[in-house]
């Protein structure tokens, strides 16, 4: 493509936008609304995932062994468990460490009265999971080991977190599909109107010997521009809103900040900006291509 052709198509694309401005504005407004909704949901979901992930890190399974199991065997089991993909970390806590910890937490100076370690058989493995969804499998695996006496875990925490994660995924996918459908329809409609308005011009272009590309390019560029503007506006809005909300929470709910941490705007927008731009421009491109292919068999 020649540079002059590119600028011609760009100029004509802008011209189409202006001539067709009410339809174009309606399309931009719809994409803006959809992508703004997406941006808000995405920010919430990303933070929710972050909070869930923080909680997940704290979820552990404790494995106790039959009395008399040697430390060597326990360490061997530790290695076997560590090799599983859903496991992020396994910590071996010897009977002495368990007792020291217990003393420190609950007994304090009263511990002086104990001459032997009452938690002699309490050496254990603390397992931290990379993915709580696989907790049940891991528990089954560990319980099959013959030296294992007891496995302590919370099925409810794992199920809740897994469920929440799945819900997040479903909402995201549903939202994206809906957004795509509505926006595609609107852009495609806007371009069709533009083509109808310029039917006469297109006929003349055809007679003079314009290539398909030359006739179609301005309409595709019009779609791209609608998509680009329709994604830039909600990104700006979401950015301002996100920071306002974080400021508001910090100012009005200081107690919350001790419990959960929110992602900084940079982390959220590092992925949100490319996703929104790709979606906006992609919808613009696809929407205009549908119309152009349907109405411009030149």
């Amino acid at each position: 493509m020649r540079i002059s052709t590119f600028f011609y198509a760009l100029g004509q694309g802008f011209r189409n936008l202006l001539r067709n401005r009410w339809f174009a504005l309606a399309s931009i407004a719809t994409i803006t609304t959809c992508l703004f909704m997406f941006g808000v949901f995405y920010s919430i979901l990303l933070n929710f995932r972050h909070i869930v992930a923080t909680i997940e890190e704290g979820v552990s399974i404790t494995v106790f062994f039959e009395p008399g199991t040697s430390e060597e065997i326990m360490l061997q089991r530790k290695v076997e468990i560590e090799e599983r993909p859903e496991v992020s970390e396994v910590v071996y806590i010897s009977a002495e460490e368990a007792w020291d910890s217990f003393k420190g937490d609950y007994l304090g100076e009263y511990a002086e009265g104990f001459t032997e370690n009452p938690l002699e058989d309490s050496a254990n493995l603390e397992i931290y999971l990379a993915d709580v969804a696989h907790q049940a499998e891991l528990v089954d695996f560990v319980e099959e080991m013959e030296e294992v006496r007891e496995v302590n875990y919370s099925a409810m925490t794992a199920d809740t977190l897994t469920g929440a994660n799945r819900l997040i995924a479903y909402i995201s996918v549903g939202l994206i599909v809906l957004l795509f459908a509505v926006s595609l329809f609107l852009i495609s409609n806007t371009i069709s109107v533009g083509i109808a308005v310029r039917r006469e011009e297109i006929t003349i272009m055809k007679y003079v010997g314009a290539t398909d590309f030359f006739v179609r390019a301005p309409f595709v560029i019009e779609g791209l521009l609608i998509g680009l503007v329709g994604s830039a506006i909600p990104l700006g809005l979401t950015y301002v809103l996100y920071n306002k909300v974080l400021e508001y929470i910090a100012a009005h709910f200081p107690s919350l900040s001790g419990l959960v941490t929110f992602l900084p705007d940079k982390t959220v927008f590092a992925t949100l900006v490319p996703i929104c731009l790709i979606m906006g421009v992609g919808i613009g491109f696809l929407g205009s291509m549908f119309s152009v292919r349907k109405h411009l068999r030149v």
């Binding site: 006469e200 003349i204 007679y207 010997g209 290539t211 398909d212 030359f214």
Partner: peptide, 21 residues
């Protein structure tokens, strides 16, 4: 199909209703 534009560039056409922009 792809050669039609090139072919048409050899022709000039005038209509009864002018067909101007």
């Amino acid at each position: 199909r792809g050669r039609i534009p090139k072919f048409r560039r050899n022709l000039g056409i005038v209509f009864q209703d002018f067909r101007l922009l």
